[in-house]
Design a protein around this nucleic acid. Structure first.
Lengths: 204, 204
DNA sequence: ACTGCCGGATGACAGATGTCATACGCCGAC
DNA sequence: GTCGGCGTATGACATCTGTCATCCGGCAGT
């Protein structure tokens, strides 16, 4: 048995973050050496504390856990990455894997899986919910182009075509065209449904 | 110093729930005697385990933590109620208070406040974030009528007027009228914005 | 060199949405 | 007992949204 596993916790909700720290603190072989509340603080903290495993929430201010994962993978490729999220969206799993994550956990999995996942990734294994993996494969890749995604994201708050055209520096007609193709690709009837479906799949 | 405080934890995400349990388990005077993942299991569990303080998440399957709080307050009025939520929505605070909650905490508050809140409510105090309380008062009460809220909620997924009319057993014109008045009351331009604002305020 | 896709744009059209005036019955407050 | 608010409904109207055909320039494959 070697020294304890050094873990970083990145999660924006203090109460959840500290609770997870308490949970991991119960394990003899795991030590939470750093906690951050923002995605853009992850890389520096990982470097500073010589972290073995980084546990990253997706939804965070600064940047997403997935972006943070990609940055760590690029700069410090030996650090293991566990992505932890509230939402089991297939698209999230896909992007997390593309960013180089070693494990993908949803927060409604049993708590015991967290420490287990930390140990497994350190042993070189990958940890992925098989149901979610199947869903990700079944859904296929994100069918939307960059612009379609941007426009859809901008439309999500209820902005009108004119507002979208202004903020995105496009003509109103172009905005409508993008939304129209997005609506067709997602096989729905209007932009509101398109936003909902794209969100659910993790494509936004 | 009397016996330990018996706490129930109601939260649908296992990992978060068990992590919070670990956190509270670190306190000598607090014991988590029951955990449930659904709102509609709260009342029975509170009764069965002679709980002193119930810690309730709002978003849960079965019924919301607020509805569960109301039920406990009605049936077992001596039990203290702490509502814990991800979203600091003023309307949530208002409804929680109306349901008889003794404390209202948001999950991005420091973890230490959780145990403190448990002790304070047991001592007869109320625990409320002052910023949120101010926001709740500033926003005023929910301006939407029951029907307007129902229609807006049904419209949230992107349903069309015809679909809304069918599912709510109304005429299409009536649906449009309700949405129109809701849009005006919320001072927005379309149903999508109305849904977003109503959500943010906790009025949906 | 040709083809196809992407980003961007226009114009025309049909249908959906939002507004407004108006109406009726019901109920609670004053 | 009247007044106001709510729930429900209709019809007319203006505007917004979604679709489609068509076009252009750029760029990647073949």
């Amino acid at each position: 048995m070697s020294r304890t596993i050094k873990v970083l916790l990145a999660e924006d909700q203090s109460m959840v973050r500290e609770a997870l720290a308490a949970l991991l603190g119960l394990e003899d072989d795991i030590e939470v050496v750093a906690q951050v509340a923002r995605g853009d603080e992850v890389l520096a903290a990982v470097r500073e504390h010589a972290v073995d495993v980084a546990l990253l929430d997706i939804e965070m201010p600064g940047c997403t856990g997935i972006e943070a994962a990609a940055a760590v993978r690029r700069e410090l490729p030996s650090v293991k990455l566990v992505v932890l999220t509230t939402f089991g969206r297939p698209g999230y799993l896909r992007s997390a894997m593309e960013a180089g994550a070693d494990a993908f956990l949803v927060k409604d999995a049993p708590a015991a899986q967290l420490a287990q996942a930390v140990r497994k990734v350190l042993a070189g294994d990958r940890v992925i919910d098989p149901t979610l993996a199947a869903a990700a494969l079944a859904d296929g890749a994100n069918p939307l182009t960059d612009r379609e995604r941007e426009v859809l994201r901008a439309a999500a708050d209820g902005s009108t075509n004119a507002e979208l055209a202004a903020t995105l520096h496009l003509s109103q007609g172009t905005v409508r065209n993008y939304l129209s193709t997005a609506i067709q690709k997602l096989a729905v009837r209007n932009r509101a449904e398109a936003v909902r479906i794209a969100r659910e799949k993790g494509w936004l």
